[in-house]
Design a binder for these strands. Structure first.
Lengths: 237, 237
DNA sequence: ACATGGACTGAATACTCGTTCAGTAGCGAA
DNA sequence: TTCGCTACTGAACGAGTATTCAGTCCATGT
């Protein structure tokens, strides 16, 4: 493969590769938008083509069939989780701090693409068995990053004995909850506040007594909010 | 309306009412089964009729259209929540005990109808706005039962200050998690164990220091399990 | 100027599925 | 037996959609 002075590949096949990824992004972005509004089944391929500003035929030039459009959309979000969570933990060594940073990063991705996060729950049953396995593997991998920190925290004694696997899935679930139950969480005006509230709820039951003071900043960091939220929140449907 | 000696209504219109509810149950049960396997969109009305052992026309005699089949299925589960949760709390007066009983009852319903519990997440976007409002109202009402006990617990001083609304939704979410993430929770062989584990996780961060001893039975009631589960659980996808 | 080939188009194809309704079956009353 | 009525049936209809492919367009090389 030819390369230019900066190491970028050049030549016809590089052009093709660039066009392919540009087209796929066009399609995935449009599909994410439409599926978020209408769902997978109610999004017709011609509507997708229109939204993406291309023709139906072109969609089929870059993706095999409708199911693979869905898979591409789901992988796109899950890949973002898998990239952002470790990125947020880089440079931190303390397990509890790494856990907190990872969780908040996960939550940020969910917040940035709430519709897409919901799609993983709504539509993954429409995938073939093989595609579903891919999606599940990605989900397990990301949760695994949190589980590892929980185990490390237990090892250093900062965290009480607990089932890291279970608590890891709880954290994942609470992050997804921001998308799944967003309508009911109106009292929390932004993700940051929600994230710190949930982190404190979880860590409060998890931190060893000896470590409580050290990580006090994670516990009720916004002492005023819960009461405020409780007063505001009438659970408007 | 005519009634017999035991107060049951009799006569032609009672027969009709009985037949209607029998047929609706037939249809809802068959639909729950099929939608659990294939999803709402991939379940054809003729397949539903076949599964229920009746003809297509009969389905339309008892339900207006396909969407109302979905609504009937979702309402069926949500009504069960709304019935079982208060039933489990009857006779208990202590808010923490009532909370625990309500949560475990909720979880039992989820466990008994896991497929249907998942449907509420998967398919409710296919409902009309009005039907969606009904479903949401039922969900809010049931979570409200837990929220009320959380508030009561705060009032008696058994629970630390917290946002009852948020923790209520967390509990709801953790109950749904048993259905949504069931594949990842294999280490917990039955709902009871899972329920007590989650209850202890939540209460551990929620109980006021003064109340910890009193409700010790809820905290790590199966001290051995977490470690066991952690050892078993490889997160098989 | 012309030829070549890849990218793109969108009408045509070949379905499936929700819904209806003319007709059948069964049953109690006269 | 015959009538009347209700519950039930399932073929037929119409709307809609995933996928294909014959043809157009355009950038490039000769």
């Amino acid at each position: 493969m030819e390369r230019d002075a900066t190491g970028m590949t050049v030549g016809p096949e590089a052009i093709r590769a660039a066009r392919t990824s540009w087209r796929r992004r066009q399609i995935v972005d449009a599909a994410t938008r439409l599926m978020g509004e209408q769902g997978y089944h109610d999004m017709s391929v011609s509507a997708l083509a229109r939204e993406a500003g291309i023709s139906v035929g072109t969609v089929y030039q870059y993706l095999d069939n409708k199911e693979s459009i869905l898979l591409a959309v789901l992988e796109d979000v899950l890949d973002t989780y898998a990239a952002e969570v470790p990125a947020a933990m880089v440079g931190l060594v303390d397990p509890v701090e790494r856990l907190a940073a990872g969780f908040l990063a996960y939550l940020d991705v969910v917040d940035g693409r709430r519709a897409a996060a919901v799609l993983a729950y709504r539509e993954s049953h429409s995938l073939s068995r093989a595609a579903l396995q891919r999606v599940i593997a990605l989900e397990v991998a990301t949760t695994g990053l949190l589980v590892a920190e929980l185990r490390a925290g237990s090892a250093t004694g900062a965290l009480r004995a607990h089932d890291a696997e279970l608590v890891g899935w709880n954290l994942t679930m609470l992050a997804h909850m921001w998308a799944l139950k967003h309508r009911h969480l109106g009292a929390y005006r932004d993700v940051g506040v929600y994230g710190r509230a949930q982190l404190s709820t979880v860590l409060c039951g998890l931190l060893a007594d000896a470590a409580r003071e050290r990580y006090g900043s994670f516990l009720e960091p916004t002492g005023a909010l819960p009461a405020q939220a409780a007063r505001r929140g009438g659970g408007s449907p």
